[in-house]
Amino acid sequence: MVNIMIVGVGGQGSLLASKLLGHLLLRRGYDVKVSEVHGMSQRGGSVVTYVRFGEKVYSPIIDAGEADFIVSFELLEAARWLPYLRNGGRIVTNTQQIDPMPVITGAAVYPENLLEKLKAQSAVDAVDCLKLAEEAGSARAVNLVLMGRLSRYFDFPESDWLESIDACVPEKFRELNRKAFALGRGQD
């Protein structure tokens, strides 16, 4: 059983990431469950998606200490969900920082040196996904950069990933998304 959490800020495109993973894993012959939260949390709130796969999956959710990977669109969200990471698990994160409203209003502070603090707790693969997404052609392709990065930790052939991208993305955005994926996967 492998547990992947995708976390971020509502509107950042985590639903496409989980759709892509679901498609890929089902094609690879696994039992898969994906759990999302819709509604209130989409309005710029903290969002989390659970992806679980293996021979047989019962629960659709991932609990504290269970995640093999936390894939994060934003640094504070990686820290928020850190308790869900298992011993030996890995964080794959965008280095982008987005202030939540309590920080904007001054009611709370965004923790300093967050990346270092995360690294002290677990293995962290941090990438400036926004920069790579823009390089690929759109800031909205951060999700595919992250998926590219995540793909390095699985021994699935690259062609399987690309096939799933083609299946999940409208034709006019395929080139852009393939490029974003390649930048995430290739970057060292």
Binding site: V9, G10, M40, S41, Q42, R43, G44, G45, S46, S59, I61, D63, A64, G65, E66, L76, E77, A79, R80, L82, P83, Y84, L85, R86, N87, P100, M101, P102, V103, A107, A108, V109, Y110, P111, E112, L114, K117, L118, A120, Q121, S122
Partner: peptide, 29 residues
């Protein structure tokens, strides 16, 4: 959740980690 049920039945909980700084909430806006 599976952990909540385990906890209520007195089974051991999974090991967990976190940073010490308070994490500001991110409510919908």
């Amino acid at each position: 959740s599976q952990s909540l049920i385990a906890r209520c039945l007195g089974l051991p909980e999974k090991e967990s980690r976190g940073i010490t700084d308070p994490i500001p909430p991110r409510p919908p806006v």
